[in-house]
Design a protein around this nucleic acid. Sequence first.
DNA 1: AATGTACTCAACCGCGTCATT
DNA 2: TAATGACGCGGTTGAGTACAT
Length: 248
Amino acid sequence: MGRAPCCDKASVKRGPWSPQEDATLTAFIHKHGTGGNWIALPHKAGLNRCGKSCRLRWLNYLRPDIKHGGFTQEEDNVICSLYSTIGSRWAVIASQLPGRTDNDVKNHWNTKLKKKFNSSFSKPPNPIVVVTDPPRYSATSTANSLKLHDDHEHNINTNFNMFSSHPPFDQIPMLNNNNNPIIPELSTSSSSISLPIEQNHLEFSGPSSDEAADILQSYFHGVYENNNQYPYEDDVMDGFDVSNYMGL
DNA sequence: AATGTACTCAACCGCGTCATT
DNA sequence: TAATGACGCGGTTGAGTACAT
């Protein structure tokens, strides 16, 4: 048996909302709240609309805390960063952007950011670090993120998301107030997704995840110093001698 | 000015999840 | 435990608008 429809689609109004309907819905919710039941709300409010339509109109447009207007560069960065980590979970992404709705974020992504993002990350990165012997840690990387593992492929407490820690791709390198390039910082959180070990990977030795973080950060410093850009752009190095940065 | 094309974004659709019975 | 119903989410649509020819 299929799901019963939430309303009789033939008898309720559909399509764009009129100012009158907006006013009716807004006034009702200000006075009574949603009552925790969107299906019953339109009848109580005197609206000939489906409850789902009322919910959507309120949440995406009429709520007083909704921010209308264009997205800032900072908001774009947050969206791209989170997308690279968690994918199209628009509600989660929108929760990090006060005043923005999942629908807003999704539309903005589909119309503006997707092309920009894809053109910058259309090529998978090459392996970026050589193997040392014996490896103590390994890491996997995609175009957007890199994660460290211990010998047994357990995640260790060091994670680096290239995109979220990176200057926006159309402003590489981004300069700080002193006109110095902003160097990406390694995060010590382990909140992002883990990647398959067989993907592009790098391995290196080191006694602790903290040292691993130092090595990686040094690596990005080094690439920037040598090439005047960060490694994932076009010429990711095929090999990288970690020992240069370990005092070995 | 007329027509075609691309873009934007509000709204809809269907499904997964969760709470209730 | 299963059935039911409402909510919330992501994908998609299509009307309206802007821009190009």
